[in-house]
Computed example of a mutant assay.
Amino acid sequence: MSTMTRAIVFDEYGGPQVLRLVDLPDPVPGPGQVRIRVRAAGVQPADSKLRSGAWKSWAPVTFPGRLGNEAAGVVDALGPEVTGFAVGDEVLGPANGAYADTVVASVKLLAPKPAALTWSEAGALAASGQTASTVLEDLAVKPGETILVNAAAGGVGLMAVQIAVARGVKVIGTASEANHEFLRGLGVVPVTYGPGLADRVRAAAPEGVDAALDAAGGDALEVSLDLVGDRDRVGTIVDQGAAARLAVKALGTRRSGSRLAELVALAAAGELRVFVWKQFPLERAADAHRESEGRHVRGKIVLMP
């Protein structure tokens, strides 16, 4: 007998109001997959871009669209050829369509949930954490160097600055004044964004800046390029158009079980903290998107089915 799962869908591009809750048949895990009863699903800025149609030229949605690409929960069914996981295991990792009560995911991309993480923290780790890890790799950031992170208090920014600090990298982070003390507590040298940014960064890093990550948009890339000079060591995760125009790196993410396991180990050791800004029940996904788009989020927003 098939059972149903609640899921968030949308039938057209638009504002948060296009999101609606529906009942769908429970997904069935295929070869190498498990089904997860979702306890927490992270809300990404990318979800809003997909929903609004901002990315439709290169990432079109097939309607009815589904959102969410990271989750934490309890394994409740195994597909064929699955080893190393059992029903009842607590896991986290990438899962498409994670705004739902249940979701299927590839076991190659999952990691066991450590007891040190709450459900909401575990649900918000995989996507931003793996993007941050990939970015630092692609910008070739090494111990003893200095990196500028624009939007250091955002979801990816917070992960990137902590991973970099743990590796012995000096981090300059742009953020609003309200987040400066918070960032200092993570070992970051905070600077205010806006006019005069380059001068403030030079004062904070008189030895120079070796690499720069833009997670903010706007004129952050131009300023970063001015400070770093080397186009191979400047990149953005938010502005592909500017990356092409300035011939710097348009940065993405690479996901793997091993990359996630490294992040989980850092989190379990207390060297990588997951900051959850707010939690919303699944049926309030539209409110979660409105909060996310308010641009005053420190860390991540999480849906709790």
Rank of each mutant, 00 (worst) to 15 (best):
Met1Arg: 11
Thr3Tyr: 11
Thr3Gly: 15
Met4Cys: 01
Ala7Gly: 02
Ala7Cys: 06
Asp11Arg: 11
Glu12Asp: 14
Gln17Ile: 00
Gln17Tyr: 01
Val22Tyr: 00
Val22Ala: 00
Asp23Met: 11
Asp23Pro: 01
Leu24Trp: 00
Leu24Arg: 01
Leu24Asp: 03
Pro27Leu: 00
Gly30Val: 01
Ile36Trp: 01
Arg37His: 09
Val43Tyr: 08
Arg51Gly: 11
Gly53Val: 11
Gly53Ser: 10
Gly53Arg: 10
Thr62Gln: 12
Gly68Pro: 02
Val75Ile: 04
Gly88Lys: 11
Glu90Met: 06
Gly93Ile: 09
Asp101Cys: 07
Val104Glu: 06
Leu110Thr: 11
Pro112Phe: 11
Lys113Val: 00
Ala115Met: 03
Trp119Cys: 02
Ser120Thr: 13
Ala124Tyr: 04
Leu125Asp: 15
Ala127Trp: 10
Gly129Gln: 15
Thr131Asp: 03
Leu136Lys: 06
Glu145Thr: 13
Ala151Pro: 12
Gly154Phe: 14
Gly155Phe: 07
Val156His: 07
Gly157His: 04
Ala160Lys: 04
Ala166Asp: 14
Arg167Phe: 10
Gly173Gln: 00
Gly173Phe: 05
Thr174Phe: 09
Ala175His: 07
Asn179Tyr: 06
Val191Gln: 03
Ala198Lys: 00
Val201Asp: 08
Arg202Met: 11
Val209Glu: 01
Ala211Thr: 04
Ser224Val: 08
Arg231Tyr: 02
Ala242Ser: 15
Ala242Arg: 05
Ala242Gly: 15
Leu246Lys: 13
Gly252Asp: 03
Arg254Ser: 10
Leu260Gln: 03
Ala268Trp: 05
Ala269Val: 09
Glu271His: 14
Leu272Asn: 13
Gln279Cys: 15
Phe280Ile: 00
Arg290Asp: 14
Glu291Pro: 08
Arg295Trp: 13
Gly299Leu: 03
Ile301Gly: 09
Val302Arg: 01
